[in-house]
């Protein structure tokens, strides 16, 4: 039995829009192993979000094959195989932070006692202990995004799908969250698919970097990133790190020049 959790073959997706069809994904072949941390990087509009949404069964491919945990994406979604972190925090304003984290747990019919335990655990994990009773608008953007990560983690999925979760945050907060995410991944051995625009972020976090190019959205390069499991922030100054970052940058440049 293989350890492949996500596998796509000649995956294709064309959006039918009012004016002209948009070829968002073209011939995507990608295998993601259990416990891998895979980053999708590429210029705006190259289909990163679309690919993540196809994996999450939020978008239907128009061609090719995809399996998630050996099932169709729909079956995987129905089995609650993943936690999804959107680009915006998407917290419900009428719910407090703890109620927001309880939302998926309520939907799943998890007992109140267990809910309480998971809320406590995951808020501690994202450094938000003490903010249980606050409403989202009383928190900064970074705190809101952390709460939304805690919400995805509370489901205790084996797989995390994250769409530019730190895109709107300042450098310092971002560094801090990157470090925490690396620790979390290292400790829990979850499979993570992570969309980002930042080369250092991708190299720092990933075991595998998928460089994509636009029009139509396709995979330009897949780069292995074997920097070990536990990564202090200083690793970003190491020669190996810079070498990988360089290759990613070259890939992005070439992808741009491609059309």
């Amino acid at each position: 039995m293989s350890n492949t959790v996500i596998s796509t073959k000649n995956l294709d997706l064309t959006f039918q829009t009012a004016d002209s069809p948009v070829h968002a994904l073209s011939d995507i072949n990608l295998d993601i192993e259990k416990g891998e941390f895979v980053s999708l990087i590429g210029p705006s509009g190259c289909g990163k979000t679309t690919l993540l949404r196809v994996i999450a069964d939020l978008e239907q491919p128009t061609g090719g094959e995809i399996s998630v945990n050996g099932m169709t994406p729909e079956q995987a979604r129905l089995a609650r195989a993943y936690g999804y972190v959107f680009q915006a925090a998407a917290l419900y304003p009428w719910r407090t932070i703890e109620q927001n984290i309880a939302l998926p747990l309520e939907v799943m019919g998890i007992s109140k006692a267990e809910q309480k335990k998971r809320i406590e655990q995951n808020l501690a994990l994202v450094d938000l202990t003490g903010f249980e009773k606050k409403h989202p608008w009383q928190l900064s953007g970074g705190m809101q995004q952390r709460a939304s990560i805690a919400r995805a983690l509370a489901v205790e999925p084996d797989m995390l799908l994250m769409d530019e979760p730190f895109g709107a945050l300042d450098e310092i907060v971002r560094d801090h969250l990157n470090e925490q995410l690396n620790k979390l991944w290292h400790r829990t051995q979850k499979t993570v698919v992570f969309v980002t625009h930042s080369i250092p972020e991708a190299v720092y976090l990933s075991t595998k970097i998928v460089v994509m190019s636009p029009r139509p959205g396709k995979i330009y390069d897949i780069i292995d990133c074997d920097l070990g499991d536990e990564r202090p922030l200083e690793i970003r100054e190491s020669a190996k790190f810079l070498k990988i970052a360089h290759r990613v940058r070259e890939g992005l440049k070439a992808g741009h020049a491609y059309d």
């Binding site: 939020l58 129905l78 609650r80 998407a90 799943m108």
Partner: peptide, 13 residues
């Protein structure tokens, strides 16, 4: 919002 509806969908609500 579409994003909030999507969120519910990921929970299989």
């Amino acid at each position: 919002d579409a994003i909030n509806m999507d969120l519910m969908r990921t929970f299989n609500a």
